[in-house]
């Protein structure tokens, strides 16, 4: 009993050591921000105080929630389709050198197209609904995942493959027993990056045409010079992105139970 209590306390201390500096830094930043706006060092119409921002958050909570759901839906669909495309592209490209040589340059080129430039075009082609937003999210998210998977497939231990071959396994069995599990950690690393891209991608495409979503809300409050609401929506986006990354970490732990063992 005593030992158990001791270990709980120890864990708490370790946790504090890890998180406290980060928390303190953020609190410090908010205090500086507060002083800057309250003492009118920066005019309050340009930089609202933290309290104004919280008030705006509370006041507009229903509207923000509705818009968030729209943005999240777009990001989710885009990410989902992005994952599927990335999986098929990476797997086919890994199995066939010719496809790799043919499509890898195109993949890289899609990443150099400025999002701002392509978003209005997508709106012109697909209308003001969700389709152009989802398409843009797909474009921005599939790449990190595909590259992650490709790296993962490549990093597979040649001897493990040899072992499977000596057991009489063909390509498909080698893929499911060795290659894919080996690529999972790379996949999740890519997915984490893609998740944050997904939210930003959805918001940007909403800026450039649409009726709903956090991006639309942003353009409206900007036109009204409601800076407190602008900051409020930024905070909402930060929180959503963090939650999404947390969700991916949880997913990773569920999908890779052996990883926890290794780190011990």
């Amino acid at each position: 009993m005593k030992r158990k209590l001791q270990s709980i306390i120890n864990n708490l201390i370790v946790g504090l050591k890890n998180y406290l500096p980060g928390v303190l830094a953020i609190v410090g930043l908010i205090i500086v921000w507060h002083i800057l706006s309250v003492k009118s060092i920066v005019p309050s119409y340009m930089l609202p105080s933290p309290r104004d921002v919280v008030n705006a958050l509370i006041e507009d909570r229903q509207i923000l929630l509705d818009h968030s759901l729209v943005t999240l839906t777009e990001a989710f669909y885009g990410l989902f389709i992005g994952i599927i495309i990335a999986f098929f592209m990476a797997t086919l490209m890994d199995e066939c050198k010719f496809l790799y040589r043919a499509f890898y340059p195109i993949m890289v080129i899609t990443q150099t197209i400025p999002t701002i430039a392509i978003a209005p075009l997508l709106v012109l082609w697909m209308g003001f609904g969700m389709e152009p937003k989802i398409t843009l999210v797909v474009l921005t998210t599939f790449f990190p995942i595909a590259v992650g998977l490709l790296d993962g497939y490549k990093s597979v231990d040649a001897d493990s493959v040899k072992l499977l071959r000596s057991m009489g396994a063909g390509k498909i069995k080698i893929f499911f027993h060795v290659k894919f599990p080996n690529a999972l950690s790379h996949f999740f690393a890519g997915l984490k990056i893609s998740a944050s891209y997904a939210i930003v991608g959805a918001v940007i495409s909403e800026w450039l045409g649409g009726f709903e979503g956090l991006g639309v809300y942003m353009t409206r409050v900007k036109k009204a010079y409601a800076f407190d609401k602008m900051f409020a929506v930024i905070i909402v986006i930060i929180v959503i992105s963090l939650l999404l990354m947390k969700l991916i970490n949880v997913l990773r732990k569920i999908c890779m139970p052996w990883d926890k063992v290794k780190n011990k």
């Binding site: 001897d159 040899k162 072992l163 000596s166 057991m167 009489g168 396994a169 027993h177 599990p181 999972l184």
Partner: peptide, 30 residues
Amino acid sequence: PGRISYMLQKDLLLPHKKIKDNVALGLIVK
């Protein structure tokens, strides 16, 4: 391949499989 068994220099247990699955791998592959 697959008629007799071959153990390579490293133990080559797959880190993502439990011991029971690692041990049974050859049979499952077959």
